[in-house]
Nucleic acid binder design. Structure first.
Lengths: 229, 229
DNA sequence: AGACATTGGTACAAAAATGGTTGGATATGG
DNA sequence: CCATATCCAACCATTTTTGTACCAATGTCT
């Protein structure tokens, strides 16, 4: 298990995270990245590990490094990254999730194994442990993990695949820009209540309650989205 | 037989779950899986069991293992969406369509333009013109076009994109094999009645009727599928 | 111009982590 | 009883990560 921030990270996860931040626009073009030693401290790993990750990104032509100066973003995307993700608005995303995840929870109630439920509960507990004062970024990640573990319960490969890819969209720019506005302490607390309710319904195999709670959850997310624009 | 011990897992269930996570995209291409020892702990089984499961996945060319480095996803199938298609059963497909298309029709009732409705009607007329004696292959194509034009009405680009790709799955092997059994004259006539009902509901902007008819349509398809196996 | 701090680049050895392997103990079901 | 499967505890070979030290280039200050 890779847990961000709190524990050590290997070269793969470091490069993946940096890549995500660059492609997601968190690090703008031509911007200088933090120093290697600084990133190492931030990830809780050694400088050598960070350098290994950097070499990967350099091979991908995502960054350029200059001795004594720093590391700079030099990405040339457009071709590969102009996928559906970037042209999808957060509102469109919620509408699709409402279709997919409501059906997923219905299947989950029927098909979830004991192990599936344990995984969901684990993610739920981690999510709740973050508390309502956590960083929106951290909450968003844990929230995504929770919802994906719900999809897992469906036992339907196609459903899982779709939920995974649809949730990837959340990492992109338009959504990132709104996270800070929407994910206030108050809303996080509300969301967590709903997460708990969804899990309880699923755990007791109550299909109607599970569906109702999931719809309520996505409806709230949609309302928050509309309120923030 | 395997009694569902809540914690222990045998090689079969471990490999099945890992396979699902790979196919579902939770473990993406080129990503490193958790270490064997870590997976063993997670599943509450021994490392040997995990290794047995891994060997299965290696035989299936799903993963590649490197000493001292780790286990990596080598599944070209995750690279594009047509591959998940081949490993999706018709039943799984119907379940996903039930999620997507029901939501699509709800959005369609709200958002469909006059031009959208004309396109749907055109496809519907063509479908009906085929009659109930047509080739299953031809009906399937026209049916697909009709359903895609419904998705178009949603005005949600992500929804349209997903419905397009999900419907592509129908062109593949497992589905093709069943077409001839299911698409009898009698069933084609039934399906066409439902198509007409869906269009009428959409055209008169009756969201509840549209949803009800769509659910009924997919339910019938599901029942036929179950009956044919 | 010169001193100094900061940056990435390099080298090397110790420590840790990883998959691969072996042998024997312990069930479980035929 | 045997066959199969699982578990456990080692050990091996390889790779990765770490820690440390130092080098070279750059930027900033006096």
């Amino acid at each position: 298990m890779r847990i961000e921030g709190s524990t050590n990270a290997d070269a793969h996860s470091v490069s993946a995270e940096l890549k995500r931040k660059i492609l997601g626009g968190e690090f703008q073009y031509d911007e200088r990245l933090p120093a290697e030693r600084s990133i190492a401290e931030q990830f809780g790993c050694s400088r050598g590990t960070v350098r290994a990750a950097m070499e990967r990104l350099e091979d991908l032509k995502l960054i350029e490094r200059r001795i004594g100066s720093g590391t700079f973003v030099r990405h040339k995307l457009t071709a590969n990254e102009t996928d559906i993700a970037n042209s999808t608005s957060p509102l469109e995303l919620i509408e699709v999730r409402r279709g997919l995840e409501v059906q997923a929870i219905r299947l989950a109630v029927v098909n979830a194994s004991a192990r599936n439920l344990q995984a969901v509960e684990k993610n739920l507990i981690e999510l709740e442990a973050l508390g309502s004062r956590c960083e929106p970024e951290d909450f968003s990640k844990a929230d995504q993990a929770f919802h994906l573990s719900l999809a897992e319960c469906s036992g339907n490969s196609l459903m899982i695949w779709l939920c995974n890819h649809v949730n990837d969209v959340r990492c992109h720019r338009q959504w990132s820009a709104m996270k800070d506005k929407i994910l206030t302490q108050r809303q996080i607390a509300l969301y967590n209540k709903q997460h708990r309710a969804i899990f309880e319904a699923l755990n007791s195999r109550d299909i109607n309650a599970a569906e109702k709670e999931t719809i309520a959850h996505l409806q709230l997310a949609k309302d928050d989205l509309l309120g923030a624009t």
